[in-house]
Amino acid sequence: MNTQHSVEEPILKYAADIGSLGPVTIVGSRTQWDVGGLPSPGSREIRAPAGVWSHQPEEMTVRCGAGTSIRELNEECSRFGQMVPFDLNPEATVGGALAVGRSGFRRLRYGHIRDLVLQIRHVDHSGLLVTSGGPTVKNVSGYDLCRLLVGSLGKLGCIAEVTLRCLPIPETTLWLTGTGDPFEIYNELYRPPSILWDGDQVWVGLEGVKSDVESQAALLKLDQTDSPPPFPEGGRRSLEPKALRGLVERSEGWLAEIGVGVVHYTTPQVPEPLSDPNKRLMSELECRLDPRGRLNPGRQLVAT
């Protein structure tokens, strides 16, 4: 018998809605709707349940429905001085953010959002619930399906409920900007949350206790500013951190995350091709976990 916590009513309803027949598309807040291609016409649109079901501040974990907005999640967490550093449009849903699997601009410090996931309950192609991971902050029981589902665009299963790790909200946050070599800045600082560069200007986000933020800021000849710049939303590339040095000419608008390798562009970018063996493994996963291709059809991770 499965002794993990009981299943919330709305999850059962979500599973029944997905059922076992016909193509379905899970709708979040449509903030990253076109990633991976638009859903095939004619598939039923379904929303994942919303609600923060349990927040255990002393465990620093939170469990919510996949349809919960990042705003609602962080409002709950902040009541106890905690946060889940998604750093996306606050209207985005938690499930949508995880299904798309793009990290936020403080990744340099907090890692990929994938690493915040402790447990996922998803509805599979036959309308059945599957639980993977575990509710505790550390766990290696069984295969890590949670990591597989993050960034899967809902094609291997529909995320229903997630348990996430929370982090303490830092005492002080400071943004700086100016000109300077972003790579030198990176080498100067100790585990900064964010260094952004558009080819001319740099922005540095610092967090921590006040004295540390001040001492780190004092290492840099930059001016204080309110926030990071707006992120270009036309396209996105994923490069090796050191390849960012090659991004010199400002022929088009871009903003690079130094030390991470994500580059935000104003214009659409072509995704990197997959190697043949990886393509094969991914197709094998798709045909085993969704043999009839009914989950989020139209979205594509593995180009044919």
């Binding site: 990929h112 399906l145 993050v150 291997l156 090796e240 995350e257 994500v262 990886n278 991914m282």
Partner: peptide, 25 residues
């Protein structure tokens, strides 16, 4: 017997996270 690279040095490799799946397997 096929040799392949799961994940790469970029922050968001294309496709499913086979690297994450392999770890702990």
């Amino acid at each position: 017997g096929t040799v392949t690279l799961l994940g790469d040095l970029t922050p968001e490799p294309a496709g499913y996270d086979l690297r994450g799946l392999f770890i702990g397997s």
